[in-house]
Design a binder for these strands. Sequence first.
DNA 1: CAGCATCCCAGTGGATACTG
DNA 2: CAGTATCCACTGGGATGCTG
Lengths: 138, 138
Amino acid sequence: MTMPSSPLKSWPEIQAAGFSLENCPVRDVLGHVGDKWSTLILGALGKRAHRFGELRRALPDISQRMLTQTLRDLRRTGLVAREVFPTVPPGVEYSLTPLGRSMIAPLAALTAWAESNHAAIRAARADFDRAEEEARAA
Amino acid sequence: MTMPSSPLKSWPEIQAAGFSLENCPVRDVLGHVGDKWSTLILGALGKRAHRFGELRRALPDISQRMLTQTLRDLRRTGLVAREVFPTVPPGVEYSLTPLGRSMIAPLAALTAWAESNHAAIRAARADFDRAEEEARAA
DNA sequence: CAGCATCCCAGTGGATACTG
DNA sequence: CAGTATCCACTGGGATGCTG
């Protein structure tokens, strides 16, 4: 997702206008949720702690740049913990913090919703695209 | 958020690796969640149906380009309905579909989580940034 | 009023190469 | 092994102007 570096000024008005959108943290969280990789990483770490390389293998399509960066972001938000083992070769283990674990439930609720409604969503998409196609033909 | 136009091939492995991430619809939904504007629009429409212009006013910072585009996307996913009133001047009303309404609950669960934990998140960020600052100083 | 088209820049994220 | 650094292509999204 695209999070603006400069804070939006008018969110107070926005949230007043409609929803439970706090100043920033909500956006931060939703940013992670919408992020292509964050949820995948959170999911993997939800199962068990992973080493860096394990995560790479678990998420075949992620570049190490994105993995590093996303992990950094998740750590910064307090969702993921990093532990370094001063062995040779060095090992680094990532795991969910208590905060991160507490997020799994609501996140899972959303993905569960998505899964149980994915038929409807696919149908809606198909309908929409078909209707659009017809419109273009006319 | 950034959704890839070309589907990822290896998600089967990815989801096998860790989480309940269906082929695509879940990503579609999470994309909307992470999107800068979708949740705001969903929230506004969750309160009541809005006209195009009302939405613009409710979301002061959105450009009409993004509003149009996001609404289109939400309609395509089946979350939002559009009704045209052939009046003069023409009026268009947007509202949540039943599917859209059913999504509000899990979405609200997540934003609720974010809100009740935003203190922890802010603290984590501050800690992280401070530690980083120290590291740079050293 | 609602919304499409064009232009354009900043930021995101991939590939690759290098380090502790 | 676990990153960091550089380069670069792509696109998300803002501003502006036009149409039904």
